[in-house]
């Protein structure tokens, strides 16, 4: 291989003039984390609501929520981001469209919301699956005690369902982090984008991508460990959720 390795490159100043190449990657990591965090908050809240609504016994609510899930699940995340970023401002009234386009950090907001909604469909699937995994008797027992439907969900069904789906939710969280890299296509300077930029400026392709790979692995490990801790905290003596 006639590739010229230069691991010292990270400590050299980047042509952006704001710091070293390593600082560049860290800035990217920050945007990756910020985007993932906001996207996950959206995915988790919207997904939980949609998932719960899909288990109710109301025909049109279930149908509307199913349509929501199918819509967001069957269009690639990249195309969805393009729709939010390029198409939405055009089809809105001119003034709103202009406001959207000139908004500061537009790529961050669009990326987070777009990825959040994309992931919310998958969270909704998990929440629904978790609720349906519970025996129907649990719903009956809550109802028989006089709890309202909302109370039955709040105090009985959801606490158990979320415990059951903690492991798949952890992978959806990791997927959110991974998907945040797609936002580079709408100009978000997250970790992968900064890695690309570093490679273009410095020509040290493999050093840059190795560093990015390590940073992603670290984020993965931290999220996994944190969720394992959450699982341990949420564990109920004598109750196994089947994994």
């Amino acid at each position: 291989m006639n590739y010229h390795w230069n691991w010292g490159i990270f400590w050299e100043m980047s042509p952006e003039g704001t710091g070293t190449y390593f600082d560049m990657l860290l800035a990217g990591l920050w945007w990756t984390l910020a985007t993932s965090a906001l996207a996950w908050i959206i995915a988790f809240s919207v997904g939980s609501v949609v998932g719960v609504l899909r288990t109710l016994r109301s025909g049109w609510v279930v149908m509307a929520c199913n349509a929501y899930v199918e819509l967001f699940r069957n269009i690639p995340i990249l195309v969805q981001l393009f729709l939010w970023y390029f198409v939405l401002p055009e089809v809105l009234p001119a003034e709103m469209g202009r406001w959207l386009k000139t908004m500061p950090n537009a790529a961050f907001w669009t990326g987070s919301i777009g990825i959040g909604l994309f992931m919310s469909a998958r969270v909704a699937e998990q929440v629904k699956a978790g609720l349906q995994a519970l025996p129907r008797g649990q719903w009956m027992a809550g109802t028989a005690l006089g709890l309202t439907t909302a109370q039955t969900y709040r105090y009985i069904l959801l606490p158990t369902a979320f415990r059951i789906i903690l492991p798949p939710l952890t992978s959806e969280m990791l997927n959110t982090v991974k998907n945040s890299s797609v936002a580079l296509t709408i100009g978000l300077m997250e970790l992968t984008a900064q890695t690309r930029a570093m490679q273009e400026f410095s020509f040290q392709v493999f050093e840059a991508f190795t560093a990015a790979t390590i940073l992603y692995l670290i984020v993965n490990a931290v999220v996994t460990l944190a969720m394992r801790w959450v699982e341990k905290m949420a564990a109920v003596p004598g109750y196994t959720t089947g994994h």
Binding site: S180, R196, V205, F209, A212, T213, Y216, L217
Partner: peptide
């Protein structure tokens, strides 16, 4: 390893 990395990053990796 593969499952921990974003596909976009992997695409770039292999591209180079």
């Amino acid at each position: 390893l593969m499952r921990s990395l974003p596909l976009v990053l992997v695409i770039f990796w292999f591209y180079f």
